[in-house]
Design a protein around this nucleic acid. Structure first.
Ligand code: MN
Ligand code: MN
Ligand code: ZN
Ligand code: ZN
Lengths: 136, 136
DNA sequence: TTATTTTTGCAACAAAGTTGCATTAATATT
DNA sequence: AATATTAATGCAACTTTGTTGCAAAAATAA
């Protein structure tokens, strides 16, 4: 199977059991998950932990998921359900200090004017605090 | 010496050689620095690497420096020269993929409207790409 | 069915950060 | 200035997280 990536690169990635299982976990999850969290959700011994790292990398390359770096430095992954085609993730992410979840706030895209001498490639907007369900 | 922090906590932190040296490095630096980078700037064997971690933590608590989590997950530290009193760092940070520097863009504060059910405690706005000096 | 190429498991490694504890250094007290 | 108090440091050991090389296994192409 060939998947077209950002109108430039063609990759040929295989549809493996591990890939399907990990992608399903991310699509069912309301929140973004780290490698560790994916591992904890998968059945014990389902696959090697290295495989999870590699599958997540592949899914990002295939534009099926996107990467979010949390304020604590941990990388989390979220599905790309309603992402625009150019895969730019300008939307805000909220990290709850209480329940430790990271959520895509797709409705909020911060506005900013960076001098055009800066060439923007990636955006990572994180806000942490207490989420609605933890604060009530 | 007692320093008042965010109008609430009083701490008693000592003015040590390591603290002075590390703070001076951060105040002289145009860019934010990681623990590793601070270590590389300090003279060989100046102090233990654990001490650098602990001094950086202390300087953050004293509101003398602020923490920035880079897109690659590495935590960088920058001085607080022109920071407002409540120590909120709404300004943008730019990470150059080429020269690997992280710079505070204090003039740019992204605007966003997060529903008030979210209680905001920390903000970490990162944009990565190519910085002006690398692109010319 | 066979050939080709990607993916996986495993072990070993590396980097980054943390912890406990004895020693040292800074500051407060006398 | 001497002493007492407590914070800071060095060191070693440990943990956590992520990476790499390579042989075996699995997926896809032929
Ligand atoms: Mn997102
Ligand atoms: Mn800054
Ligand atoms: Zn929460
Ligand atoms: Zn640069």
């Amino acid at each position: 199977m060939q998947t077209q990536l950002s109108c430039i690169i063609f990759v040929c990635m295989r549809n493996t059991v591990a890939k399907q299982a990990i992608l399903e976990i991310l699509y069912k999850s309301e929140t973004a998950l780290s490698q560790t969290e994916v591992q904890q959700i998968l059945p014990q011994g389902f696959c090697n932990r290295v495989t999870i790292y590699r599958v997540l990398d592949r899914l990002v390359k295939e534009n099926l998921i996107h990467e979010i770096t949390n304020i604590d430095g941990v990388v989390k992954y979220a599905n790309c359900k309603k992402c625009n085609k150019n895969h730019s993730h300008q939307h805000l992410h909220f990290s709850c200090e209480n329940c430790n979840t990271v959520t895509c706030i797709k409705s909020v895209e911060p506005q900013f004017d960076l001098p055009k001498e800066y060439e923007i490639k990636k955006i990572n907007f994180m806000v942490s605090g207490i989420c609605p369900s933890c604060s009530r």
